[in-house]
Design a protein around this nucleic acid. Structure first.
Length: 646
RNA sequence: GCGCCCGUAGCUCAGAGGACAGAGCGUUGGCCUCCGGAGCCAAAGGCCGCAGGUUCGAAUCCUGCCGGGCGCGCCA
């Protein structure tokens, strides 16, 4: 039982608070007409409330929280600060709220401040909201921080399955989000080419004398050999007999002799990753880490610390072990073996070396171009003959996207940084520990055939999407492309819409759902906006000037939802989870769909765009344009295609 | 046993101390003379696992318990 690092994961409890970076820049004050972001608007309100609080004679600074009002309450944003003040002022909150509302200076665009049961709510002028909401989207400024994201890291010995799917979807989306949020991001895919799993697979090919006939995808084909070998190894006697052969392959792998064989499997797997829309900056081969001496260097850094010992007797005699008890609680035996008594390194030791390199504690890997990816972006790979000028690694922050079952080794990796004298780097090392994916409630097991491949899932998703396209949009100019976008979008969205720490059970109906809380729901909202804008273009209306004086109450919720986008991205980046952004997009799509369908009491459309009076039409077009922009940008950050027509 | 994570509507999930707890699926009933019905509107449905505690205020923080998942290999 040795699942690849991808299919195991956890979130360690202690990491979030410690490593969440300061992503919040102080908001820049500016004239109300320049508001681009609800933060500015909220910040103005906050300052106004602070002034009012001071007028009430409160000396100490108080925290002024500002939150959106519930849908059925008056106003757009409100503060419960009167509750906080009640004790100090020895007066009921309702009275305080009334006084605050009466004294608060209203920033431009704010119609009124109103006490509502202890809260002070602010009502904004719809024109002001719409103007702010339709400012062109601008990505946040560069932060000048580098973060390295490792994800996928599938053992190169079989095809990807649905457990890997979650890893790729999470890691790729998070990388995109961090890049947009202003980080300089390196995306790495770790190739465990000296592991037992690859050795077994390559041994199986020899052992059974198999010849590739080209009929099945190569990674699936070698996977079959692997499964076959494991069936044979269920018998202990047979297993013992095969062991020597496996070990021999392992040695050849370590010396790099079989790199070509591994590469062939890897290239087949990359087809699946690319089909999902994931791309990488570089591949790092485990054998390169070892060959370039990084493992030895890492061990040297640890060897003379009080936590690392080489016992002369007892069960660990002759091995190099690390005492992890100061870093991990609840272990029966806190000693972790780094180097076996036979002199070979364990997986955690190699992982530590990799982590040290990621954070610049070690150098020396060479890189060269490996291949060109579908987008045109070059994929680099570590290589003995590669260029050694440091192009990758050396980041002050890292995110390892690895499932929760590997929490213990991941905590050890983090601890090793502290042991090596760099607690500051340990702070920046984050394990994104997502829960595992089960299949019909049971643990996935590639070995026993209890699994579904990613290729199979995508084929089925696209097949179903193709049917829906034929049915809903028979005149579609390119139904196959649309089906790909929808099918893949559905699958990827399903993988990132929930919290990573929640276990998910893979179910076809759920992962391939095209309505409700789904990727296609958001895609549809986007395509609908795009369609409307195409019609506007055809009618020559694209340049119509908005007349903000005609804004109606219907635009208010759409504008408010649009203004929340930067905050959603920021929160997703800060919390290191794409689900925040996915949930936001569902909300925006819902608000936009509701707006689109709004009816007057007589049943006629309350919010026509193309048929609206001039001026109002311009306003609505600018709002629709922004809806399309935000949905498209948001979907791209999740790695979900945003087709214009579907 | 010890440690970590999870427990919110029939099901799947959002809700990082604040307003009567929100969606989707499913159920029931409406909406295409109108810009895409993969949509919209409405109804029904909830001691937020249980018990204490902190707080003006708790689904959210603390403690204990119950239930589920995972971890604790000279495997990866």
């Amino acid at each position: 039982m040795a699942p690849s690092r991808t299919e195991r994961t956890t979130r360690s409890s202690n990491s979030r608070a410690a490593v969440t970076p300061a992503l919040y820049h102080p908001p820049r004050p500016g004239p109300a007409t320049m508001v681009q972001d609800v933060r500015d608007l909220k910040e103005e309100l906050r300052r106004a409330v602070e002034q009012a609080v001071a007028l009430l004679g409160v000396e100490e600074p108080v925290e002024v929280a500002l939150q959106p009002t519930p849908p059925d309450r008056p106003g757009d944003y409100g503060t419960p600060v009167a509750f906080t003040l009640a004790r100090a002022l020895r007066r009921p909150p309702v009275e305080i709220a009334r006084d605050l509302a009466a004294r608060v200076p209203l920033p431009p665009g704010v119609v009124r401040a109103e006490p509502v049961g202890g809260y002070v709510n602010f009502l904004l002028e719809p024109a002001h909201l719409v103007r702010a909401a339709t400012e062109p989207l601008r990505p946040p400024p560069l932060l000048g921080r580098r973060v390295l994201v490792e994800h996928t890291s599938v053992n190169p010995n079989k095809e990807l399955h649905v457990g890997h799917l979650r890893n790729v979807a999470l890691g790729d989306a998070l990388s995109r989000i961090l890049r947009y949020a202003g980080y300089e991001v390196q995306v790495l895919n770790y190739i465990d080419d000296t592991g037992r799993q690859v050795a077994e697979t390559l041994f199986a090919l020899e052992h059974y004398g198999l010849e590739y006939d080209g009929r099945t995808k190569y990674d699936h084909w070698v996977g079959e050999a692997y499964v076959r070998l494991h069936r044979e190894m269920e018998d202990p006697a047979a297993r013992a007999k095969l062991e020597e052969g496996v070990r021999a392959v392992l040695h050849r792998l370590e010396s790099g002799q079989l790199r070509g064989e591994v590469e062939r499997i890897l290239r087949a797997q990359l087809q699946t990753m690319w089909r999902l829309g994931a791309e990488y900056d570089a591949l790092v081969w485990e054998s390169d880490l070892v060959r370039e001496g990084l493992l030895q260097q890492a061990l040297a850094l640890l060897e003379h610390t009080p936590y690392v010992q080489r016992p002369q007797e007892g069960r660990y005699a002759g091995a190099l072990v690390m005492d992890t008890s100061p870093f991990v609680e609840g272990l029966e035996d806190p000693y972790l073996v780094l180097v076996r008594s036979d002199g070979t390194a364990t997986y955690p030791a190699k992982d530590i070396a990799f982590q040290f390199w990621k954070m610049g504690l070690l150098q020396g890997l060479g890189f060269r171009a490996f291949t060109r990816q579908p987008s045109g972006r070059v994929l680099y790979t570590s290589h003995p003959e590669g260029d050694r000028s440091a192009r990758f690694g050396g980041c002050e922050e890292t995110i390892n996207v690895i499932d929760v079952t590997q929490s213990y080794p991941q905590r050890v990796v983090r601890a090793a940084l502290a042991v090596a004298g760099r607690p500051d780097l340990a702070e920046g090392a984050y394990h994104l520990a997502y829960e595992t994916v089960t299949l019909e409630g049971r643990r996935i097991s590639g070995r026993r055939g209890h699994t579904v491949s990613v290729d199979e899932v995508l084929d089925e998703a696209c097949r179903r999407a193709r049917q829906v396209v034929a049915e809903k949009n028979p005149d579609h100019p390119d139904p196959d492309a649309a089906a790909q976008a929808v099918g893949i979008g559905a699958v990827r969205f399903a993988m990132v819409k929930t919290e990573p720490r929640r276990q998910i059970d893979f179910r076809w109906e759920q992962a391939l759902s095209f309505d409700g809380d789904s990727g296609p729901y958001v895609q549809y909202a986007h395509a609908r906006a795009a369609s409307l804008l195409r019609r506007a273009q055809d009618a020559g209306l694209q340049d119509e000037e908005p007349d903000l004086t005609q804004v109606t109450e219907f635009e208010r919720p759409v504008a408010r939802a649009l203004l929340d986008f930067p905050e959603a991205v920021r929160a997703a980046a800060a919390q290191r989870t794409p689900h925040v952004l996915a949930q936001y997009l569902l909300e925006l799509a819902a608000v936009w769909n509701a707006y689109y369908n709004a009816r007057n009491p007589d049943g006629s459309s309350a919010t026509p765009v193309l048929q609206a009076p001039p001026g109002l039409r311009g306003t609505r077009l600018s709002l629709v344009r922004q809806v399309r922009e935000v949905l498209r940008t948001g979907l791209e950050l999740l790695g979900v295609p945003a087709p214009e027509v579907m």
